[in-house]
Protein backbone atom coordinates (compact mmCIF):
# COMPACT_ATOMS: atom_id res chain seq x y z
CA UNK A 1 0.00 0.00 0.00
CA UNK A 2 1.27 3.47 -0.81
CA UNK A 3 0.43 6.78 0.82
CA UNK A 4 -0.03 10.03 -1.10
CA UNK A 5 2.58 12.74 -0.67
CA UNK A 6 -0.16 15.35 -0.28
CA UNK A 7 -2.94 14.72 2.20
CA UNK A 8 -6.45 15.77 1.11
CA UNK A 9 -7.84 18.90 2.75
CA UNK A 10 -10.45 17.82 5.26
CA UNK A 11 -12.51 20.97 5.40
CA UNK A 12 -12.68 24.72 5.36
CA UNK A 13 -10.21 25.03 8.22
CA UNK A 14 -7.57 23.08 6.29
CA UNK A 15 -8.11 25.14 3.18
CA UNK A 16 -8.00 28.41 5.12
CA UNK A 17 -4.82 27.38 6.91
CA UNK A 18 -3.35 26.55 3.53
CA UNK A 19 -4.32 29.91 2.09
CA UNK A 20 -2.83 31.75 5.02
CA UNK A 21 0.35 29.67 4.76
CA UNK A 22 0.75 30.58 1.11
CA UNK A 23 -0.02 34.27 1.75
CA UNK A 24 1.17 35.17 5.25
CA UNK A 25 0.29 38.82 4.70
CA UNK A 26 -3.39 38.01 4.35
CA UNK A 27 -3.79 36.73 7.89
CA UNK A 28 -1.89 39.66 9.28
CA UNK A 29 -4.12 42.04 7.35
CA UNK A 30 -7.26 40.30 8.59
CA UNK A 31 -6.01 40.46 12.16
CA UNK A 32 -4.97 44.09 12.27
CA UNK A 33 -7.63 45.61 10.04
CA UNK A 34 -10.35 45.94 12.72
CA UNK A 35 -8.13 47.55 15.36
CA UNK A 36 -6.56 49.80 12.74
CA UNK A 37 -9.97 50.90 11.57
CA UNK A 38 -10.99 51.49 15.15
CA UNK A 39 -7.86 53.49 15.85
CA UNK A 40 -8.00 55.38 12.59
CA UNK A 41 -11.63 56.30 12.48
CA UNK A 42 -12.71 56.52 16.08
CA UNK A 43 -9.57 57.71 17.75
CA UNK A 44 -7.83 59.81 15.13
CA UNK A 45 -11.18 61.01 13.87
CA UNK A 46 -12.22 62.35 17.22
CA UNK A 47 -8.77 63.83 17.72
CA UNK A 48 -9.13 65.65 14.42
CA UNK A 49 -12.58 66.87 15.41
CA UNK A 50 -11.10 68.13 18.65
CA UNK A 51 -8.35 69.98 16.84
CA UNK A 52 -10.86 71.48 14.45
CA UNK A 53 -13.06 72.69 17.30
CA UNK A 54 -10.11 74.37 18.96
CA UNK A 55 -9.70 76.61 15.92
CA UNK A 56 -13.26 77.89 16.22
CA UNK A 57 -14.25 80.55 18.68
CA UNK A 58 -17.24 81.49 20.75
CA UNK A 59 -19.08 84.69 19.93
CA UNK A 60 -18.60 87.04 22.87
CA UNK A 61 -22.00 88.59 22.35
CA UNK A 62 -24.33 85.65 21.87
CA UNK A 63 -22.27 82.73 23.15
CA UNK A 64 -22.73 80.90 19.83
CA UNK A 65 -19.80 78.95 18.36
CA UNK A 66 -18.51 80.59 15.20
CA UNK A 67 -17.30 77.95 12.79
CA UNK A 68 -14.54 80.06 11.27
CA UNK A 69 -10.81 79.51 11.55
CA UNK A 70 -9.22 81.65 14.24
CA UNK A 71 -6.38 81.49 16.73
CA UNK A 72 -8.32 83.61 19.18
CA UNK A 73 -9.27 80.63 21.32
CA UNK A 74 -5.66 79.59 21.69
CA UNK A 75 -4.78 83.16 22.63
CA UNK A 76 -7.36 82.83 25.40
CA UNK A 77 -5.29 80.05 26.92
CA UNK A 78 -2.74 82.70 27.77
CA UNK A 79 -5.12 84.73 29.87
CA UNK A 80 -3.78 84.75 33.42
CA UNK A 81 -6.49 82.52 34.91
CA UNK A 82 -6.13 79.91 32.18
CA UNK A 83 -2.35 80.00 32.30
CA UNK A 84 -2.71 79.42 36.05
CA UNK A 85 -4.66 76.26 35.36
CA UNK A 86 -2.07 74.94 32.91
CA UNK A 87 0.87 75.72 35.19
CA UNK A 88 -0.93 74.31 38.22
CA UNK A 89 -1.70 71.10 36.36
CA UNK A 90 1.80 70.66 34.96
CA UNK A 91 3.43 71.34 38.33
CA UNK A 92 1.10 68.86 39.99
CA UNK A 93 1.67 66.21 37.30
CA UNK A 94 5.43 66.67 37.58
CA UNK A 95 5.41 66.46 41.36
CA UNK A 96 3.15 63.41 41.29
CA UNK A 97 5.35 61.70 38.71
CA UNK A 98 8.55 62.37 40.65
CA UNK A 99 7.01 61.18 43.91
CA UNK A 100 5.63 58.06 42.23
CA UNK A 101 9.03 57.30 40.71
CA UNK A 102 10.83 57.69 44.04
CA UNK A 103 8.24 55.61 45.90
CA UNK A 104 7.86 52.98 43.21
CA UNK A 105 11.53 52.32 42.62
CA UNK A 106 12.40 50.45 45.82
CA UNK A 107 9.14 48.50 45.64
CA UNK A 108 9.68 47.58 42.00
CA UNK A 109 13.33 46.81 42.67
CA UNK A 110 12.50 44.48 45.52
CA UNK A 111 9.79 42.76 43.50
CA UNK A 112 11.98 42.38 40.44
CA UNK A 113 15.19 41.23 42.08
CA UNK A 114 14.38 39.65 45.42
CA UNK A 115 10.75 38.56 45.66
CA UNK A 116 10.29 34.88 44.85
CA UNK A 117 7.36 32.49 44.73
CA UNK A 118 4.60 33.43 47.17
CA UNK A 119 6.20 36.79 47.92
CA UNK A 120 6.01 37.67 44.25
CA UNK A 121 2.35 36.70 44.18
CA UNK A 122 1.79 38.78 47.31
CA UNK A 123 3.51 41.70 45.63
CA UNK A 124 1.33 41.52 42.55
CA UNK A 125 -1.75 41.22 44.71
CA UNK A 126 -0.66 44.16 46.85
CA UNK A 127 -0.02 46.37 43.85
CA UNK A 128 -3.08 45.32 41.88
CA UNK A 129 -5.58 45.10 44.72
CA UNK A 130 -6.17 48.85 44.93
CA UNK A 131 -6.88 48.82 41.19
CA UNK A 132 -9.78 46.44 41.66
CA UNK A 133 -11.79 48.63 43.97
CA UNK A 134 -13.68 51.61 42.64
CA UNK A 135 -11.63 54.66 41.99
CA UNK A 136 -14.31 56.85 43.54
CA UNK A 137 -14.46 54.79 46.71
CA UNK A 138 -10.71 55.17 47.12
CA UNK A 139 -10.82 58.92 46.62
CA UNK A 140 -13.68 59.32 49.10
CA UNK A 141 -11.80 57.15 51.57
CA UNK A 142 -8.81 59.47 51.24
CA UNK A 143 -11.02 62.45 51.85
CA UNK A 144 -11.97 60.89 55.19
CA UNK A 145 -8.39 59.97 56.04
CA UNK A 146 -7.13 63.48 55.35
CA UNK A 147 -10.05 65.37 56.88
CA UNK A 148 -9.49 67.78 59.76
CA UNK A 149 -11.19 65.34 62.09
CA UNK A 150 -9.99 62.32 60.10
CA UNK A 151 -7.69 59.42 60.88
CA UNK A 152 -4.48 61.21 60.03
CA UNK A 153 -5.29 64.28 62.10
CA UNK A 154 -6.33 62.06 64.98
CA UNK A 155 -3.15 60.03 64.80
CA UNK A 156 -1.02 63.18 64.59
CA UNK A 157 -2.73 64.55 67.68
CA UNK A 158 -2.19 61.29 69.57
CA UNK A 159 1.50 61.24 68.74
CA UNK A 160 1.98 65.01 69.19
CA UNK A 161 3.02 65.40 65.58
CA UNK A 162 0.27 67.81 64.54
CA UNK A 163 3.01 70.37 64.01
CA UNK A 164 4.10 68.43 60.92
CA UNK A 165 0.68 68.78 59.32
CA UNK A 166 0.41 72.39 60.44
CA UNK A 167 3.85 72.99 58.97
CA UNK A 168 2.83 71.58 55.61
CA UNK A 169 -0.39 73.58 55.63
CA UNK A 170 1.49 76.84 56.27
CA UNK A 171 3.74 76.43 53.22
CA UNK A 172 2.75 78.93 50.51
CA UNK A 173 0.56 77.31 47.81
CA UNK A 174 -0.19 74.37 50.08
CA UNK A 175 -2.42 76.27 52.50
CA UNK A 176 -5.69 74.78 53.61
CA UNK A 177 -7.74 74.25 56.71
CA UNK A 178 -6.78 70.57 56.64
CA UNK A 179 -4.83 68.19 54.41
CA UNK A 180 -8.09 67.33 52.68
CA UNK A 181 -8.59 70.92 51.55
CA UNK A 182 -4.93 71.56 50.73
CA UNK A 183 -3.30 71.02 47.33
CA UNK A 184 -0.91 68.77 49.25
CA UNK A 185 -3.86 66.47 49.92
CA UNK A 186 -4.66 66.42 46.20
CA UNK A 187 -1.04 65.51 45.58
CA UNK A 188 -1.13 62.65 48.11
CA UNK A 189 -4.25 61.17 46.58
CA UNK A 190 -2.87 61.45 43.06
CA UNK A 191 0.29 59.67 44.15
CA UNK A 192 -1.68 56.90 45.81
CA UNK A 193 -4.07 56.39 42.91
CA UNK A 194 -1.45 56.33 40.15
CA UNK A 195 1.36 54.54 41.98
CA UNK A 196 0.58 51.07 40.56
CA UNK A 197 0.89 52.46 37.04
CA UNK A 198 4.46 53.42 37.89
CA UNK A 199 5.43 50.26 39.77
CA UNK A 200 4.38 47.74 37.15
CA UNK A 201 6.33 49.01 34.11
CA UNK A 202 9.29 49.80 36.34
CA UNK A 203 9.27 46.30 37.75
CA UNK A 204 9.04 44.82 34.25
CA UNK A 205 12.05 46.88 33.16
CA UNK A 206 14.09 46.01 36.23
CA UNK A 207 13.28 42.35 35.83
CA UNK A 208 14.90 42.43 32.42
CA UNK A 209 18.22 43.66 33.81
CA UNK A 210 20.32 40.51 34.21
CA UNK A 211 21.98 40.00 37.56
CA UNK A 212 25.33 39.55 35.84
CA UNK A 213 25.11 43.17 34.65
CA UNK A 214 25.14 44.37 38.24
CA UNK A 215 27.87 41.94 39.16
CA UNK A 216 29.94 43.09 36.21
CA UNK A 217 29.63 46.66 37.41
CA UNK A 218 30.72 45.76 40.95
CA UNK A 219 33.44 43.55 39.54
CA UNK A 220 34.85 46.48 37.58
CA UNK A 221 35.07 48.53 40.75
CA UNK A 222 31.79 50.43 40.88
CA UNK A 223 30.30 51.24 44.27
CA UNK A 224 26.61 50.48 44.76
CA UNK A 225 25.61 54.05 44.06
CA UNK A 226 27.75 54.13 40.92
CA UNK A 227 26.13 50.90 39.77
CA UNK A 228 22.75 52.43 40.44
CA UNK A 229 23.49 55.58 38.48
CA UNK A 230 25.40 54.11 35.57
CA UNK A 231 23.78 50.72 35.08
CA UNK A 232 20.47 50.17 36.88
CA UNK A 233 18.97 53.57 36.20
CA UNK A 234 19.81 53.73 32.48
CA UNK A 235 18.56 50.18 31.97
CA UNK A 236 15.40 50.78 34.00
CA UNK A 237 14.81 54.14 32.34
CA UNK A 238 12.45 52.88 29.62
CA UNK A 239 10.28 51.45 32.41
CA UNK A 240 10.50 54.65 34.41
CA UNK A 241 9.55 56.64 31.32
CA UNK A 242 6.68 54.29 30.55
CA UNK A 243 5.45 54.63 34.13
CA UNK A 244 5.89 58.37 34.11
CA UNK A 245 3.90 58.64 30.89
CA UNK A 246 1.07 56.94 32.76
CA UNK A 247 1.29 59.00 35.93
CA UNK A 248 1.97 62.24 34.10
CA UNK A 249 -0.80 61.97 31.53
CA UNK A 250 -3.30 60.51 33.98
CA UNK A 251 -2.71 63.44 36.31
CA UNK A 252 -2.93 65.89 33.42
CA UNK A 253 -6.34 64.57 32.46
CA UNK A 254 -7.97 63.69 35.77
CA UNK A 255 -11.05 65.69 36.73
CA UNK A 256 -12.43 63.71 39.69
CA UNK A 257 -9.77 63.92 42.39
CA UNK A 258 -9.45 67.74 42.39
CA UNK A 259 -13.21 67.93 42.83
CA UNK A 260 -13.18 65.84 45.99
CA UNK A 261 -9.84 66.56 47.65
CA UNK A 262 -8.13 69.92 47.51
CA UNK A 263 -9.03 73.59 47.51
CA UNK A 264 -11.35 73.47 44.46
CA UNK A 265 -8.75 75.12 42.24
CA UNK A 266 -9.23 73.96 38.68
CA UNK A 267 -7.01 71.53 36.80
CA UNK A 268 -7.05 71.02 33.04
CA UNK A 269 -9.35 68.00 33.10
CA UNK A 270 -11.89 69.66 35.33
CA UNK A 271 -11.78 72.82 33.25
CA UNK A 272 -12.41 70.91 30.03
CA UNK A 273 -15.30 69.12 31.68
CA UNK A 274 -16.82 72.34 32.90
CA UNK A 275 -16.22 74.43 29.78
CA UNK A 276 -17.68 71.77 27.56
CA UNK A 277 -20.38 70.49 29.88
CA UNK A 278 -21.91 73.55 31.45
CA UNK A 279 -20.61 76.57 29.61
CA UNK A 280 -21.02 75.30 26.08
CA UNK A 281 -17.61 76.77 25.25
CA UNK A 282 -16.42 73.78 23.25
CA UNK A 283 -13.66 75.66 21.37
CA UNK A 284 -11.90 76.66 24.60
CA UNK A 285 -12.49 73.18 26.03
CA UNK A 286 -10.87 71.74 22.90
CA UNK A 287 -7.96 74.16 23.12
CA UNK A 288 -7.45 73.14 26.74
CA UNK A 289 -7.60 69.47 25.73
CA UNK A 290 -4.84 70.05 23.18
CA UNK A 291 -2.51 71.29 25.93
CA UNK A 292 -1.83 67.86 27.52
CA UNK A 293 -1.18 66.40 24.08
CA UNK A 294 1.43 69.07 23.36
CA UNK A 295 2.96 68.68 26.82
CA UNK A 296 3.26 64.92 26.33
CA UNK A 297 4.91 65.41 22.92
CA UNK A 298 7.45 67.79 24.45
CA UNK A 299 7.97 65.41 27.33
CA UNK A 300 8.59 62.43 25.06
CA UNK A 301 11.01 64.31 22.85
CA UNK A 302 12.94 65.48 25.93
CA UNK A 303 13.00 61.91 27.21
CA UNK A 304 14.26 60.70 23.86
CA UNK A 305 16.97 63.31 23.79
CA UNK A 306 18.01 62.32 27.31
CA UNK A 307 18.56 58.80 26.01
CA UNK A 308 15.62 57.21 27.77
CA UNK A 309 15.00 54.82 24.91
CA UNK A 310 18.63 53.88 24.18
CA UNK A 311 18.38 50.62 26.06
CA UNK A 312 15.29 49.51 24.16
Amino acid sequence: MTYPAILPAKGLADRLTGTFWRRPGLLLLLLIAPPLLWLGVVYLGSLAALLLQSFYSIDEFSGVVKEEFTLKTYAELFRAQNLDIIIRTVVMATAVTLACAVLAFPIAYYAARYAKGPWKAAFYLGVMLPLWSSYLVKVYAWKLILAKEGILGWAAEGTHTSWIIDGILSVPFLEGSSLSTSPFGTFLVFVYIWLPYMILPMQAALERVPNSMLEASADLGATQSQTFRTVILPLALPGVIAGSIFTFSLTLGDYIIPQIVGDSSRFIGLTVYQLQGTAGNTPLAAAFAVVPILIMLVYLSLAKRAGAFDAL
Binding site: E215, A216, A218, G221
Partner: peptide, 30 residues
Amino acid sequence: HLRNVNTVFQDYALFPHLNVRDNVAYGLMV
Protein backbone atom coordinates in the same frame (compact mmCIF):
# COMPACT_ATOMS: atom_id res chain seq x y z
CA HIS B 1 34.57 46.23 43.89
CA LEU B 2 37.62 46.39 46.14
CA ARG B 3 39.15 43.12 44.95
CA ASN B 4 41.83 43.40 42.32
CA VAL B 5 40.37 40.59 40.27
CA ASN B 6 38.09 40.89 37.25
CA THR B 7 35.66 38.58 35.59
CA VAL B 8 34.63 37.67 32.07
CA PHE B 9 31.02 36.61 32.48
CA GLN B 10 29.43 33.67 30.81
CA ASP B 11 26.82 35.90 29.12
CA TYR B 12 29.49 38.64 28.76
CA ALA B 13 27.20 41.07 30.66
CA LEU B 14 28.09 43.94 28.37
CA PHE B 15 26.13 47.11 29.15
CA PRO B 16 23.66 47.48 26.29
CA HIS B 17 23.25 51.23 26.73
CA LEU B 18 26.97 51.98 26.37
CA ASN B 19 29.04 51.67 23.22
CA VAL B 20 32.00 49.32 23.06
CA ARG B 21 34.52 51.97 24.06
CA ASP B 22 32.52 53.04 27.10
CA ASN B 23 31.97 49.43 28.05
CA VAL B 24 35.71 48.82 28.04
CA ALA B 25 36.41 52.10 29.82
CA TYR B 26 33.75 51.46 32.46
CA GLY B 27 36.18 50.21 35.08
CA LEU B 28 38.28 53.35 34.65
CA MET B 29 35.28 55.64 34.66
CA VAL B 30 34.07 54.44 38.05
